[in-house]
Amino acid sequence: MTHTFDTSKPIYRQLADQIYWRIIRGDLKAGQKLSSVRDAAIEFSVNPNTASRTYNEMERDGVVETKRGQGTFVTEDQTVLHQLREERKQVRIEEFVREMEAMGFSATDMIHGLKSYVDKEDQSQ
């Protein structure tokens, strides 16, 4: 699978975002072992130095932990994982709101539109 990276951010940061997405979706669970830096580099087709920087960055964020001689694992700290999910939610909401505002919709329009969309989704399931 080819991964594309956009221009706005450095690749090491985008790679971290992709791995965070897997954690948020539950593809990678709390305490689960991540692939090695080299395997991650191969999977995402990035320079191993970039992948290594991503792992350092994720460790600094507290989302993963490196255990000497064993590898890198997703943290089991639920507070951190909860925060990761919440941050992602805020980012998405902000994007949505900015775009709606740009199109001239009011806050009421947004809430109303969102509610009727969600209700319709519920009915069809």
Partner: peptide
């Protein structure tokens, strides 16, 4: 390459 993205976008 990462500087080109990070500093110049």
């Amino acid at each position: 390459t990462e500087d080109i993205r990070e500093k110049e976008g």
